[in-house]
Amino acid sequence: MKKMNAGTRLERVVAAGHFALTVEIGPPRGANPESVLKKAALLKGLADGYNVTDNQTAVVRMSSIASAKILLDAGLEPVMQMTCRDRNRIAIQSDLLGASAFGIKNCLCLSGDHQKASAAGKLKGHPGAKNVFDIDSVQLLAVLKGLRDEAVQEGGDSVDQAVPFFIGAAWTPLSPPLEFRVHRLAKKAAAGADFIQTQAVYDIAAFARQVAKAREMGLTDRVAVLGGVIVPRSAKMLQYMNQSVPGVTVPDQIVKRMADAPSPKQEGIRIAVELIQAMREIKGLKGVHLQAIEAEEILPEIIKAAGLSPRPSV
């Protein structure tokens, strides 16, 4: 068996050849840990890793480090998300060292949503904020790899010991320019990514074509790609995602199914299960990243119905 980078459960599951499952736990817009703990209790033991977002859509929430630590203490293994929007390379590395000291070992490296996104919905957000973007997501991967493999900071100074991370990145396989997307994945793999969580996929055929290209380039052996699934809740939500979320295309028949369903909730669960099952059939895919935005309570049922429960012991 190949040498472990950080030895996290997610890493071990992937290494053992099991179909991995990660889910998402969004931190609250407040300081109360209860909502994190409630979601943790609901989902404990059901997934191999629990993504904790870093001020997703640039909306201020409890920090991903603190939320990840709360999960860790509750016995769940977090995938801490880290964006480049709010911190320069000094703050990022400092936070990574701190997170590691807490025992956080999975880290997903993102450029981050632009601060304008914070005011796109119902919230005021902070569209007047100054962003940082000192480095981008690919460069962030290289920073983590340097800390882990060479015990060296981006600037060249050493750290006292290697910092163990299982390094993750995002991939939007279906955004234009389509032809470049697989090379963007290759860049992330080259920079240091061990695993990939993709943007939500509804168009399985188009996704499978992109994964096949990645497989031909040998990328799916170098990084563990987990396909993104967001549980549909209504036809309206799917239409919104289709129109307004770049990189997400929703085939008409899925929208129609949701529109015609007597119970959109049950239909959404069925579609999610089907998407997971379809992804299991895509050669080179190593797992799924499952999200039910602000509706985590429906996840256990989906996970069981998709045959992803119980999780393997590794």
């Binding site: 450029s111 981050g112 632009h114 962003n131 973007f133 997501s137 955004s175 770049p246």
Partner: peptide
């Protein structure tokens, strides 16, 4: 986002920026 390594996932289908 002053990215240096290619487009983020936010390229719209018509080639415009998500922001």
């Amino acid at each position: 986002k002053s990215l240096m390594n290619g487009p983020c996932g936010g390229t719209r289908h018509n080639g415009m920026c998500e922001v």
